[in-house]
Design a protein around this nucleic acid. Structure first.
Lengths: 344, 344
DNA sequence: ACGTGTTACTAACTCGTGTTAATTATCGCG
DNA sequence: CGCGATAATTAACACGAGTTAGTAACACGT
């Protein structure tokens, strides 16, 4: 009921100065000279009244919403199970806090919902946006590009001029498979993380292929299956592999979560890991260290990617010069038990 | 470079009317009469120009930020691994979208950072907030209560008058343990989801105790261990239980994620699940259906909780009468393999 | 011709802040 | 004592919308 909203005029009255002076003091407008005692009086008045400027009014005049938008572009089901959403949010909030800004979160499930984030931009609710997930509506992207609205993409969007942040999926996958080869495996299958239209899936498959070729091993399409983000798909595809004519001694599963399903399938066949089949995953989901056997995998630096994306975006917003706009962060092979590389 | 921001004046000019008329048409101000052809002309002009109102200006005059804040109150590490964050976000976005609002996400890690969300309120950035996690700074809560700012709490905050949404943790835990008792177990241990200060942990432990007492079984403190959110703690505490003088035939682990650690520990001891030890979890994390053995657990309706919280909050914001303000949603026992209740 | 009502619209004010240009107090110095 | 320079402060406008109160145009009845 109080509704006693404190305005800058209240502060001004209490300090016995004008509203303008209050603004100067609180925003530390440099080229203005205010006597030290006035500064003190204003600060004290503001403190006592618990004054916090109205952000709408401030945004209106300064043309800065003081917040950025994080847009996840994918179907709802895949968002609920996206293990990295948390880490992205945490990383981004770090950057956002350091710059006194706010984080607005949104999701666009379907392409025809392009308005969701274009409206965000047009209504001036955000000063920049981070797009997470590689599939986006062309029209919305064009709008962003034309108005060169500060935008950073997490993931890779082939042949676009946007700033982006990603890992080198090809190299990472190659590393994973090379590890299996070094352990002596010759019959190595692959289950991707996702269907073909997803660029990350293609890249990881490419890395798999390169590793085989570099080692002089034959690439065979019937040792490849396409996962679909969830353990269920890993289970099904692993069953399919095991039903094939030639049983692999190792599998590169391009997603830890998919790998969990594959593990179930292998165990269900009465086979042991890594005894009968070795497994390498991808992502290093927090839980991968705690399943049995613990999963050898490629660490995807999700938080770091988010931080980098946030920093890039803030630079764009502040108009700082942007030279290298397509950033690739390094991955790391985490060796655990699922390949027999290390003991318990 | 264009920076050609479209304002309502542009629309007015193009339609040959005044700015006021544009506002009336676009906001469908009911008690105003505008001729149908004017309405059409204005709508068309707005469409052609791609006009979207500036939200800061609108918020300033209407006193509505058209967005709500979702605040997670816990250390960063626990946010990165909080499997429900996604589901909460998804549920809330659903409600938010249906009401043309936006979702602002924030995190308060430490109690002295109380300002983060009080500032959100004072600066009028949000029209209401949802607090997730039971531990909050008293001062900040008092501020919300005094100004009766629209607030909904996810979780339980003993003796507060806030609206809240939660599950009945006591009853749910009781159900889980009763299931074990019905299967014939007499020696049932418990690993909590968290340390004692967390009310949910207390409640689940209480449910465990009630089930034992109702069945005439003795409660013994040395069959109880306190987990700490992560698999690591489950692993350690399970080891500790197994090192004790009397080995339990079943364990109620009040968190699936903690249970994953416990499973590792059990397997490492060369024991089988459910053959040697039966296990019931709590939460029904998406992955619990895919580990082996798949986990019998209590389903926590995270998305539904979020939706309910969002709806409550919007009612509060719109000043609708609020009768039952402490909502408890039902849980469900999901029977899988970890208790031997069902076959593969 | 004059009220009375209704319809269709608009001028002018408001929200709370940042900022420019102008105004007043203060000081140094011949 | 006076005069310019400079320090300290403020009046007034802008941002882009929503909204109240008021006006102009027209019809109708007597």
């Amino acid at each position: 009921m109080p509704q006693k909203r404190v305005t800058s005029l209240d502060v001004a009255k209490r300090a016995g100065v004008s509203r303008t002076t209050v603004s100067f003091v609180l925003n530390k407008t440099s080229h203005q000279q205010i006597s030290p005692e006035t500064v003190l009086r204003v600060q004290q008045a503001a403190e006592e009244l618990g004054y916090v400027p109205d952000e709408s009014a401030r945004a209106l005049v300064s043309r800065r919403a003081q917040s950025i938008g994080l847009i996840f572009s994918r179907p709802t089901v895949r968002i609920s199970s996206d293990i990295f959403l948390n880490q992205v949010v945490v990383g981004l909030l770090d950057v956002v806090h350091a710059n006194q800004m706010r984080l607005l979160l949104d999701v666009v499930e379907d392409l025809d919902e392009k308005n969701t984030y274009v409206n965000l931009v047009k209504s001036r609710r955000v000063d920049g946006i981070i797009l997470n997930g590689p599939r986006f509506d062309e029209q919305a992207l064009d709008y962003l590009a034309e108005n060169d609205f500060p935008t950073v993409i997490m993931g890779s969007l082939p042949q676009s001029h946007f700033c982006s942040v990603d890992v080198d999926n090809v190299a990472a996958a190659r590393t994973a498979v090379e590890h299996l080869i070094h352990l002596g495996h010759r019959q190595i299958a692959c289950i991707t993380n996702a269907q073909a239209p997803f660029t990350a899936a293609i890249h990881r498959l490419t890395g798999y292929r390169q590793a085989l070729e570099n080692a002089g091993l034959p690439y065979s399409a019937d040792q490849v299956r396409f996962g679909n983000f969830d353990p269920q798909s890993g289970y099904t595809q692993m069953k399919s592999l095991l039903a094939g004519p030639v049983r692999p001694t190792a599998v590169f599963v391009a997603s830890d979560v998919v790998a969990y399903g594959a593990i179930s399938a292998i165990h269900e066949h009465g086979l042991s890991i890594p005894g009968d089949i070795a497994l390498v995953g991808f992502d290093d989901v927090p839980m991968s260290n705690f399943i049995s056997p613990s999963l050898t995998t490629i660490r995807l630096p999700a938080t770091e990617l988010a931080v980098k994306a946030g920093e890039l975006l803030l630079d764009l917003i502040q108009g700082k010069p942007q030279e290298p706009c397509q950033v690739l962060l390094p991955t790391e092979l985490i060796i655990r038990q699922s390949c027999g590389g290390k003991p318990s």
